[in-house]
Simulated scan of single mutants.
Amino acid sequence: MTEQIDIYSLIGFVGTACIIGAYFYLTAVEKPNPLILHGTNLTGAALLTISLLVHTNWPSLVLEGFWAAIAIWGLAKWWRGRNRIREGARKA
């Protein structure tokens, strides 16, 4: 394997590091911050998607689509909960 690593592969490696880092964070921290967890996962999925659009691997590309969708759902859930807390504080 003497093939040079191109910029798209490097982007994919950074995406992989983001997803692994987010999983480590989830495991290591007692109460993970959803913004950090899901934001890092979404960033990782986006970077891996960029890599996979050049070096196509359809099963991995589909996986990243689901990974991104779950991260977006988690961020939306966090955002809605944050807004509910703010509204409750204003009413009190």
Rank of each mutant, 00 (worst) to 15 (best):
L35Q: 08
I11R: 02
I11P: 06
S9E: 09
S60P: 09
G12R: 02
E30G: 13
I11K: 11
V62Y: 14
I19R: 11
L10S: 11
R80D: 15
A45I: 02
W58P: 01
K31N: 09
H38D: 03
P32S: 04
I7R: 04
L37K: 05
A28N: 07
S9D: 12
L35K: 06
I7E: 09
A68T: 05
L63V: 10
S60M: 05
Q4K: 09
N33P: 10
V54E: 12
R80G: 03
R84G: 13
A22D: 04
Y25G: 14
S51T: 04
Y23Q: 10
I50S: 02
Y23A: 11
A69V: 12
E30I: 05
A22C: 03
Y8G: 03
L26Q: 15
G65Q: 12
G39S: 10
E64A: 01
N41R: 08
P59L: 06
N41G: 06
T56Y: 14
G15D: 00
I11W: 08
R82M: 13
F13Y: 03
W73Q: 06
A22F: 10
G74T: 00
I20S: 05
R82T: 15
C18E: 04
R80W: 10
I11D: 05
C18N: 07
K31L: 14
L53E: 07
A45Y: 01
I50T: 13
Y23V: 14
I70R: 10
I19L: 04
F24D: 12
T27R: 15
C18G: 01
P59A: 06
I7A: 13
G74P: 07
L26C: 11
N83T: 07
G12W: 00
R80M: 09
G15K: 07
G39K: 01
S60C: 06
W58Q: 11
R80T: 15
H38Y: 09
L26K: 15
T56C: 07
I19Y: 04
L52V: 00
T16C: 05
P59D: 01
G21L: 01
P32V: 08
Y8I: 00
E64H: 01
V62R: 08
L37S: 04
I50F: 08
W73P: 09
E30R: 09
R80C: 10
P59Y: 02
D6G: 09
I7H: 05
G21E: 00
A71G: 12
T43D: 04
N41V: 01
Y25C: 04
P34D: 08
I5Q: 14
V54C: 06
V14N: 07
W58E: 05
I7L: 14
P34Q: 09
G21A: 01
I70A: 12
C18W: 09
N41E: 07
A69G: 15
E30K: 12
A68Q: 07
N83P: 02
R84E: 15
S51P: 02
R84S: 15
W79F: 10
A69N: 08
A28H: 01
W79V: 14
